[in-house]
Simulated scan of single mutants.
Amino acid sequence: MLYETLKVDVSERIMTVTLNRPERLNAFNSQMMNELISVFDRADADDGVRAIIMTGEGRGFCAGADLEKGGEAFARDTSIDEHRDGGGMVSLRIYELKKPIIAAINGPAVGVGITMTLPMDIRIAANNAKIGFVFARRGIVPEACSGWFLPRIVGISQALKWVYSGKVFSAEEALHGGLISEVVAPEDLMKTARATAIEIAENTSATSVALSRQLMWTMLGADHPMESHKIESKLIRWAGRMPDSKEGVESFLEKRRPDFKMRVSKDLPEFFPWGEERKFHE
């Protein structure tokens, strides 16, 4: 499938999604929103994809929402009850992914350019990257479900410090604040991200990773550890009877790399997904 705002490549079972509007610093628009949702649907349906890396073309990751309309950039014609935030629709789709996803932040990532990375599993940044939750400086508010994600990732005080000020800050500050897991030289960014993705692709069960990803994310909203215990008990009972469990143990005992055969597209348990389906309109 051809995309206009993205470049997509699959090699070594890793899908690399590159935001591809370099003339606009990869600014986010409605077409990019639709194409990102489409590519994530494609990744989930393709058992040949074990991990996803997202980065930006050129010198930026994503400069935020496209402001080409000037002062009317955030004006919407939809009713206040019907309007859905586009960044939020992307974040919700990422949240539902069955494949691990890594953000390789190669340059400026501000506004939706950083909030849409919050539901990603790992964020690695080049040491020249700049990050900003700049909404208050544009007279708007955080979006892309960041009211849920950001405090859970960095804590409420750090989240509010960045959001209140709207300042643009360094990758090192992002690292110290817990937003970024690693800062590397620009020339090492994709190599570092791919090494992590390859570690997953070559050594793990696809169904184990898919279920573990959803377990960790969904349990962030649980009100008691018993909720995690309930799901884990089902999962470990189910997984222990599956071929990948047998292969995982036997390959360990035989000191060889495992050859997992189960597929995310058809081999997940019947009780997945276990959470209540959430709708924008009830």
Rank of each mutant, 00 (worst) to 15 (best):
39 V>F: 08
39 V>S: 07
41 D>A: 07
41 D>P: 04
42 R>Y: 14
42 R>N: 12
43 A>Y: 10
43 A>D: 09
45 A>C: 03
45 A>R: 09
46 D>P: 03
47 D>M: 12
48 G>C: 07
51 A>R: 15
52 I>M: 02
53 I>T: 10
53 I>W: 11
55 T>K: 10
55 T>F: 09
55 T>D: 07
55 T>L: 14
56 G>C: 07
57 E>V: 10
57 E>W: 11
58 G>Y: 09
58 G>L: 14
60 G>D: 01
63 A>K: 11
63 A>Y: 12
63 A>M: 15
64 G>I: 06
64 G>L: 04
66 D>W: 08
67 L>N: 10
67 L>K: 15
67 L>W: 02
67 L>I: 12
68 E>Y: 07
69 K>R: 13
70 G>K: 06
71 G>E: 14
71 G>N: 14
71 G>K: 15
72 E>R: 15
73 A>F: 05
73 A>E: 09
73 A>T: 15
73 A>K: 08
75 A>V: 13
76 R>F: 02
77 D>V: 02
78 T>C: 08
78 T>W: 06
79 S>M: 12
81 D>C: 01
82 E>M: 10
83 H>G: 11
84 R>G: 02
85 D>W: 02
85 D>F: 02
86 G>R: 05
88 G>Y: 03
88 G>M: 00
90 V>Y: 01
91 S>L: 02
91 S>D: 02
92 L>N: 02
93 R>S: 00
94 I>R: 02
95 Y>Q: 06
98 K>C: 07
98 K>G: 11
99 K>C: 06
101 I>N: 00
101 I>R: 00
102 I>G: 10
102 I>S: 13
104 A>N: 03
104 A>G: 11
104 A>E: 03
105 I>G: 05
108 P>S: 08
108 P>L: 04
108 P>C: 04
109 A>K: 01
111 G>I: 01
111 G>W: 00
111 G>D: 05
112 V>Y: 01
115 T>Q: 10
117 T>D: 09
118 L>P: 06
118 L>E: 03
118 L>G: 03
118 L>V: 05
119 P>V: 03
119 P>H: 12
120 M>G: 00
120 M>F: 05
121 D>Y: 06
122 I>C: 07
123 R>F: 06
123 R>N: 11
123 R>L: 14
125 A>Y: 14
125 A>K: 09
125 A>V: 10
126 A>T: 04
127 N>A: 10
128 N>L: 00
131 I>R: 05
133 F>K: 12
133 F>C: 10
134 V>A: 11
135 F>H: 12
136 A>V: 13
137 R>S: 14
137 R>F: 04
138 R>W: 14
139 G>H: 15
141 V>I: 08
141 V>N: 06
142 P>T: 14
142 P>I: 15
143 E>A: 13
144 A>G: 06
144 A>K: 05
146 S>N: 06
151 P>E: 03
